[in-house]
Design a protein around this nucleic acid. Structure first.
Lengths: 137, 137
DNA sequence: TTGCGTGCAAAGGTTTTGCATGGCA
DNA sequence: TGCCATGCAAAACCTTTGCACGCAA
């Protein structure tokens, strides 16, 4: 859907580097803009939106909403660290993104295809809920 | 947080009845307003927002966001009338939203809890992919 | 009659779009 | 030089708020 172009610009490098530096924490577009404002590096909000959308399309960034947070949240996810097919679970309480393997889930995926005719796109699959630690609190 | 008042008005009865009639499907505020517009019954958007918020506070309605849908989604949840959970599948080609029952998926849900410690929030769960009809085209 | 509910209008946010300019390749 | 990227301004939305009026109890 987006162009396949990939120009390297100062803005893109800065945003990309910043997202990586967050180590899994999510941020809103506003927070990103504020960050660069604070360090005296102006990046237009439009640019942030457009580049983030691009990264989401390419699978390098995840986009979702969090209760109580205004605006969409973006989170850098380096899938190269997880070469095997895996699934994502997002804890709604602590915000942590958990990557996990699950054979049972792969069977379910096959089941959906064979019994329901659904060809699943696992890249977009995101489980929401409460993680172990938060449940025990 | 909200007042504990509970006046019975025509608008509230209409919205409540409409939400119930959806049998678990979710709608946006816009869709609700359009529905009542269509049948010639005008209900102010403000009223819809405020009453829905009230129902969410009281636990009778679930509110969440869905990728690709602009605005929040609201879903009536009457556990007595609809004891069985169902899941949502969104076809990325034709855009259709499919509701389906799946015992296998419920086992998977249990598996996630027992083996991974994930307490799944199925209301937010959305499967993306290609539906049967689109696959056969 | 009292006080909550309603809905218009306006405000406050977020996100998108048009377009001229800037900058990478 | 040829495009793509950028960012300002404005538009398009979604959601909330203020306020006067309507209406349930």
């Amino acid at each position: 859907m987006n162009n396949a172009t990939n120009y390297k610009t100062k803005q893109r490098e800065a945003i990309h580097s910043y997202m990586q530096s967050l180590e899994g924490r999510h941020v809103t577009v506003n927070q990103i803009a504020n960050h660069f404002d604070t360090i005296g590096q102006k990046i237009g909000i439009t640019t942030i939106y457009r580049y983030l959308d691009k990264l989401v399309d390419e699978g390098e960034v995840k986009k979702y909403t969090v209760d109580g947070v205004t605006g969409a949240c973006f989170q850098y996810v380096d899938e190269r660290e997880y070469p095997q097919e895996h699934f994502h679970f997002k804890c709604e309480k602590c915000g942590k993104l958990i990557h996990f393997e699950c054979e049972s889930l792969k069977h379910t995926q096959l089941h959906l295809l064979e019994n329901h005719g659904f060809n699943l796109d696992t890249a977009k699959l995101m489980f929401y809920g409460t993680c172990n630690q938060c449940s025990n609190r």
